[in-house]
């Protein structure tokens, strides 16, 4: 398992191989599914075009919260491995923000694990986005749809 916060960009291929190797360490031959998700910076919001975003975090707490979430996801869905990488700092449109990978014996657990990890990340991990446009910056407000997505796992 791995959970990392970083400024620099990441390679999906490298992270996929890292996840696969980790899953194979204790479960070789019994890893039937790997699901990965990559979040990107859109070039617009509800009000129009933006130039990029800036992500702030609470270093000590963000790292601990991500590690805890990966462990919880792994246990909940009996994963063979799970990993997450989240970037912070200034990101331009189309850049990669976040990567999540879940390896499991069967596909449903891998899909569910990746979905759960992203839904809960948006609720419990201290990261804040600011949208940048023409020298101005506006904090992103939490979405009700994100709350609903997290709540469905509690039912």
């Amino acid at each position: 398992m791995f959970a990392e916060i970083q400024v620099h960009d990441f390679s999906q291929e490298t992270l996929f191989e890292r996840l696969r190797k980790d899953a194979d360490t204790n479960h070789k031959g019994n890893v039937g599914a790997i699901v990965t998700f990559t979040g990107l910076v859109r070039d617009n919001n509800q009000s129009g075009r933006i130039e990029g975003i800036e992500l702030e975090h609470y270093p000590e707490m963000t790292q601990a919260a991500l590690e805890k979430l990966v462990q919880e996801t792994s246990l909940r869905f009996s994963l063979r491995s799970a990993g997450v990488v989240h970037r912070v700092g200034r990101l331009l449109n189309d850049e990669q923000i976040v990567w999540v990978g879940c390896a499991a014996a069967h596909r449903q657990a891998a899909f569910d694990g990746a979905s759960f990890l992203m839904d809960m990340l948006k609720q419990s991990v201290p990261l804040w986005k600011k949208e940048l446009n023409q020298g101005e910056s506006i904090w992103v407000k939490p979405k009700a749809s994100d709350d609903d997505a997290a709540l469905k796992w509690l039912k």
Binding site: G39, H86, L121, K122, V125, L127, W128, D146
Partner: peptide
């Protein structure tokens, strides 16, 4: 003790 707004990562 830390104070902050609801989170918006991901």
């Amino acid at each position: 003790v830390a104070f902050f707004p609801p989170v918006t990562g991901g």
